[in-house]
Amino acid sequence: MTTSILESLNRPYILNLLETLLRTPSPSGYCMTIMKLVREETEKLGYAFEMTPKGNGIITVPGQAGVGADGEGTLGLSAHVDTLGAMVRAIKPSGTLRFTPIGGYAMQTVEGEYCLVHMRNGETVEGTVLSTKPSVHVYPDAREWKREEANMEIRLDESVKSKEDVEKLGISVGDFISWDPRTKLLPNGWIKSRHLDDKASVAALFGVLEWLKREGKTPRRTVKLILSTYEEVGHGASYIPPDITELIAVDMGALGDDLSATERDVSICAKDSSGPYDYGMTSRLIELAKREGIPYAVDIYPQYGSDASAALRGGSNIRAALIGPGVHASHGMERTHADAVAGTAALLLAYLLEA
């Protein structure tokens, strides 16, 4: 009996790497550590890794000899390592920090969260995100106080009582702030953590690379994996290598309202805020998911954009599609399942072995 791609994936490898990625701080613009991590992992697998001037990573997987000469070009797969976070906007006279968001999230999703302030000397200071009226015992309107940027602050876990005390620690305006991911991988396959958008997809891409290396398989045509570092602020893959003619953005699938995907499905997005994705590519992904027995759903995301959206806005002359593991409560306390991450890797492998 032939083993399917889905069954032959190395799930422990994918999930162990995912946990490492989730625990590595990487708000947009502060991705040096995580890019070093993915570079080292790529080199362990024996693939070429290069960095763009902007800081994106490109991993090249050579295709079969002679394929692509008829103008098919290179297949691109993209996922982003950057996450939501914040930056120090001001140091208040009281010794707390005002922060400015990195990425789009509702303020109530970070209230009460632990965080790290990353100083430019390489050190970190711990803190907690709070409303400026954090206690119902003190402020009669604490419950109604609007959770917006001006009404939020970070309480530092240091003995500071003034702006000068904070500055002595080495904290400055412009320092990056990362949220505690609170990562938990449960024995039953459920994965809950901040930043599954989009580190679950990055882990799936490395599951693809590990499978190709272990099975000794070569994709039909050359594949370039793009690991972007500014997706959450809108311009992650605005530049892609010019030889790419097809790009599959691999990003989390949104769940809820009138959407049909679940946390155990691969979400195939037919249209997002940037418009419809390529009809032929989307149709082929649906056919392959059916053929490989991969649970999937087709959905439309009106409040969503991807690395493919950025590439198209940047002028890339490409066909584009979007898939990814279903993730509940996106840009909040997110959750997915190992089945969705593995299914995403399996669908990508099915596509690149034939595309």
Rank of each mutant, 00 (worst) to 15 (best):
E164M: 07
I286C: 04
C269D: 02
D278Q: 04
Y139H: 15
V88A: 01
R335Q: 14
V266W: 12
Y105F: 15
G305M: 13
L196N: 07
M119Q: 14
S162V: 00
A261W: 00
V266L: 08
G68S: 09
S78M: 04
D175C: 14
E113G: 00
R319G: 05
N16A: 13
E354T: 03
G293I: 14
F49I: 09
S260K: 10
D299P: 06
V173G: 06
P295E: 06
T183Q: 08
H137W: 08
S228C: 03
T245R: 15
I323S: 03
Y47F: 14
S159P: 01
D157K: 15
K36F: 01
K44T: 13
G103A: 10
L130G: 01
K92S: 12
Y30R: 09
S178D: 11
M51C: 00
A342V: 13
V266E: 07
C31I: 04
D257E: 10
G207D: 11
A338D: 09
R120N: 15
E113A: 13
E41A: 09
V173Q: 12
V67N: 02
I294E: 01
D165H: 04
T109A: 09
A340R: 07
H80Q: 05
K217C: 02
L21V: 07
V202G: 05
V250G: 05
D272K: 08
L186E: 13
T24M: 02
A204F: 13
D307S: 10
W179L: 15
T183R: 07
S78K: 08
P93V: 15
T124C: 11
S238P: 00
L353S: 15
L185K: 08
G343A: 03
A237Y: 05
R120A: 14
M119T: 08
I268L: 01
K54G: 04
E292F: 03
